[in-house]
Design a binder for these strands. Structure first.
Length: 393
RNA sequence: GGGGAGGUGGCGGAGCGGUCAAUCGCAGCAGACUGUAAAUCUGCCGCCCUAGCGGCUACGGAGGUUCGAACCCUCCCCUCCCCA
C-alpha cells in the first residue's frame, strides 16, 4: 500500500526469495552488487574494517561494509573523497557500501553535542572544532561519499528515556527524515548546487525511532514509511535496554514496515541477537561487536564466548574453535593467540577480527540456508541453546 | 687498598619519625564493550579470613633510641660507581 510510493532506482531493488515464518531470505541489488539477506555488515567507520585488509573481507564473504559520515567528514573530508572519485574508489572497495549518517554520534558524543531543530552541533573529537550536522548536510556529505545506501540523519535516543522525551526525539527524527528525503530528491535531481554526486544509484533509508514505547514506534514507522524510503531501519535499540524489550519492539515494529523493502536493525548485536531479530523479520545488521571484541580479546565460537586473555589458554595447543574454517582457527593455537594478545602484537587484532567476522558471517550464511530450507525455527532453537552455554575453555 | 652511592612488595622506582600494607609505572589476574572519541576502559593485585575504618607478617640481617621506625643510631651482610 505504501511501498508503491517509494522511489526506486533501476540499480536498487530488494527481492524476497524465501520466507519462513516472519524470517525472510532475500537479495538486495545495489549499484555495486548484490547482497544476500539476512546480512551482517561489518563496520568500517573510517573507510576500513579495523585490523583487516579488503582482500581478507572479500575472502571471508563480506558483501557490504559501513562507513561513517561524521568521521569521514571530519577526516579526510567528504569533498576530498568526492574529488578522489567517491568512497568506493578512495578506499578501493568494489562491493556495496553503506554510510551511517552520524546519527549515532548524536548519541555517543552526547557530551560534545547540542541538538536543535536545525540539527546537531558537534565539537570534533579530533581537535575540538565546532561543526553542524543537519539532515541536509548529512545527505549532501553522503552524496559526496557515494555509498550505495545512505542513512537518514536521526537522533539515536539514549536509554532510558521518558515517554515524553522519546516522543519529542522521535518526532524530531521524523521531521529530520522528511528533510533528508526532500534534500535527497533535490540532490538526485541535480538541484543541489555544490553537491558532488559520486553514485547516482544511491538509496536512502529512513530510521524508525521511539525508544521502547511501542505506540511511539508505531507512529514513527507509519510516518517514516509515508515519506517513502528505499529501506527502513530500526534505530535507538541495543543501547542498554533489556534484550526482551529489544526483541519485542523489533517484532512489533517490523509489522508496520513494507514487506517488499529491506529492514535494517542498526547497531545489533550479539550472535543470538541476530538470530532472534531475523526471527522477527529483520534483513540487515551492523555492529561493532565482532570487530571491537576481537581487538579486546573476546572471541565468538561455536561453543560460546572465549576471553583469549584468560590464563587458562596459555598452554592450550588446540584451535580457538575446531568448528571454524577461518585461517586463525586452521593455523593457530589458543596458546599462540593468547601470546600475541598479551604481547600487544597487532597480528592479534588481525587474526581475532578475521575469526570473529568469520563467525558472524557464517552465522548469517547458516541463517539464510535455514530460511531457504524452511528449517529456521529449529536452527534458531539449537543456536540459542548452544550460544547460551557458558563460555568454553 | 682509597673514596663514594645504595639495598623497599614479581620487576622498576617513590617514601625518609606517626591513618604506610606502603604513591606510581610495568608485569600479573579478572571483568566490561551492541548504527566505533575504543588494539579501549574498569576492578583486583603481601598472607589469612566471617572480606572489614578486620587479623597477621613486612621495607637486606641483628640490636638500639622513641609513646611510635621503611624512615634516626650501632654492628654485620650484600650490590654498584670512581681512583689505585
Amino acid at each position: 500500500m505504501v511501498s508503491n510510493i517509494t522511489v526506486s532506482t533501476p540499480a536498487f531493488r530488494f527481492v524476497l526469495t524465501a520466507t519462513d515464518g516472519p524470517a525472510r531470505r532475500g537479495e538486495l541489488h545495489t549499484p555495486h552488487g548484490v547482497i544476500q539477506t539476512p546480512a551482517f555488515m561489518p563496520v568500517g567507520t573510517q573507510g576500513t574494517v579495523k585490523a583487516l585488509r579488503h582482500d581478507d573481507l572479500e575472502a571471508l564473504g563480506a558483501e557490504i561494509i559501513l562507513g561513517n559520515t561524521y568521521h569521514l567528514y571530519l577526516r579526510p573530508g567528504h569533498q576530498r573523497i568526492a574529488a578522489l572519485g567517491g568512497l568506493h574508489q578512495f578506499i578501493g572497495w568494489t562491493r556495496p557500501l553503506l554510510t551511517d549518517s552520524g546519527g549515532y554520534q548524536v548519541f555517543s558524543l552526547a557530551d560534545r553535542r547540542v541538538i536543535s531543530e536545525e540539527g546537531a552541533a558537534f565539537q570534533s573529537h579530533l581537535d575540538g572544532s565546532r561543526h553542524l550536522l543537519t539532515p541536509e548536510s548529512a545527505v549532501d556529505i553522503q552524496a559526496h561519499l557515494g555509498a550505495d545506501i545512505a542513512m537518514a540523519f536521526d537522533e539515536c535516543l539514549a536509554y532510558p528515556a521518558s515517554q515524553d522525551a522519546a516522543a519529542e526525539s522521535m518526532r524530531r527524527s521524523v521531521r529530520w527524515a522528511a528533510r533528508c528525503r526532500s534534500r535527497f530528491e533535490q540532490v538526485r535531481g541535480g538541484d543541489a548546487a555544490g553537491v558532488v554526486v559520486t553514485n547516482p544509484g544511491q538509496a536512502l533509508f529512513g530510521i524508525v525511532q521511539g525508544g521502547v514505547y511501542q505506540d511511539l514506534r508505531d507512529e514513527s514507522a507509519a510516518r517514516t514509511v509515508e515519506l517513502g524510503f528505499e529501506g527502513y531501519a530500526l534505530g535507538g535499540l541495543s543501547v542498554g535496554e533489556p534484550n526482551e524489550v529489544m526483541y519485542a519492539v523489533t517484532e512489533a515494529t517490523t509489522r508496520h514496515l513494507p514487506v517488499g523493502q529491506p529492514r535494517y536493525l542498526m547497531g545489533t548485536g550479539t550472535p543470538e541477537d541476530l538470530v532472534e531479530s531475523v526471527a522477527r523479520g529483520i534483513d540487515m545488521f551492523d555492529c561493532v561487536m565482532p570487530t571491537r571484541h576481537a581487538r579486546n580479546g573476546q572471541l565468538f565460537t561455536s561453543q560460546g564466548r572465549v576471553n583469549i586473555k584468560n590464563a587458562r589458554h596459555a598452554d592450550d595447543a588446540g584451535p580457538l574453535d575446531p568448528a571454524c574454517r577461518c585461517f586463525t582457527c586452521r593455523r593457530h593455537s589458543r596458546a599462540y593467540l593468547r601470546h600475541l594478545y598479551m604481547a600487544g602484537e597487532m597480528t592479534a587484532s588481525a587474526l581475532n577480527t578475521l575469526h570473529n567476522l568469520t563467525f558472524y558471517l557464517d552465522t548469517m550464511r547458516r541463517i539464510r540456508d535455514a530460511i531457504a530450507f524452511r528449517t529456521f525455527e529449529s536452527f534458531r532453537q539449537a543456536f540459542v541453546r548452544s550460544a547460551s552455554a557458558p563460555s568454553c575453555d
